[in-house]
C-alpha cells in the first residue's frame, strides 16, 4: 500500500468500488427470476383478497407539523445574516430579533393549542 503512494491507494479504492458496484448490479440480474403471479402481487391482508384498490385519498394530518417546521426553517435563514451584523449593530439588532422570535413563538403556541404537534 505504501509503495503505491496516496494517489495509487485512491485509484485502487476507486477501482475496487467500481468493481463491487458492477458485481452487485450484475449478480442481481444474472439469476432469472420468474414473473410474480397475480396472487403474489396481491397485498397481504391476512389471507383475504382486497375488495377495492389501495389507491385512495386520505387526510395527511401531519401537514400542520410540516408547516410549523417550515416556519422555523425560515427563521433560521433570517438568523444567519442577523448573526453577521449583530456585533456591528449591537443592542438594537438583539431587540429586533427578539421581537421577530416572539411573534414566531406566539405562532408556535397557537399551533400547540390547536394540537398541531399531534401526529394524527
Amino acid at each position: 500500500m505504501i509503495l503505491l503512494g496516496p494517489l495509487g491507494v485512491a485509484l485502487a479504492v476507486f477501482v475496487a468500488a467500481i468493481g463491487a458496484a458492477l458485481f452487485v448490479r450484475l449478480s442481481g440480474d444474472l439469476p432469472r427470476r420468474p414473473v410474480p403471479t397475480t396472487p403474489e402481487r396481491t397485498p397481504f391482508a391476512g389471507g383475504e383478497t382486497p375488495a377495492v384498490h389501495a389507491w385512495n385519498r386520505y387526510h395527511a394530518r401531519y401537514y400542520v407539523m410540516a408547516l410549523v417546521f417550515l416556519a422555523f426553517d425560515m427563521e433560521m435563514v433570517f438568523m444567519y445574516p442577523w448573526a453577521v451584523v449583530f456585533v456591528r449593530e449591537g443592542g438594537i439588532a438583539f431587540v429586533e430579533m427578539g421581537m421577530f422570535i416572539t411573534v414566531l413563538l406566539l405562532g408556535v403556541l397557537y399551533a400547540w393549542r390547536e394540537r398541531a404537534f399531534n401526529w394524527a
Binding site: 391482508a45 391476512g46 389471507g47 383475504e48 375488495a51 377495492v52 385512495n56 385519498r57 386520505y58 387526510h59
Partner: peptide
C-alpha cells in the same frame, strides 16, 4: 365523511384470518 369534516376516501378492508 372524515373526522375533520372533510370528505375523503374510505377504504374497506378485511384483515385476517391469518394476520
Amino acid at each position: 365523511a372524515d373526522r375533520d369534516g372533510l370528505r375523503l376516501d374510505v377504504l374497506p378492508l378485511r384483515i385476517g384470518p391469518f394476520f
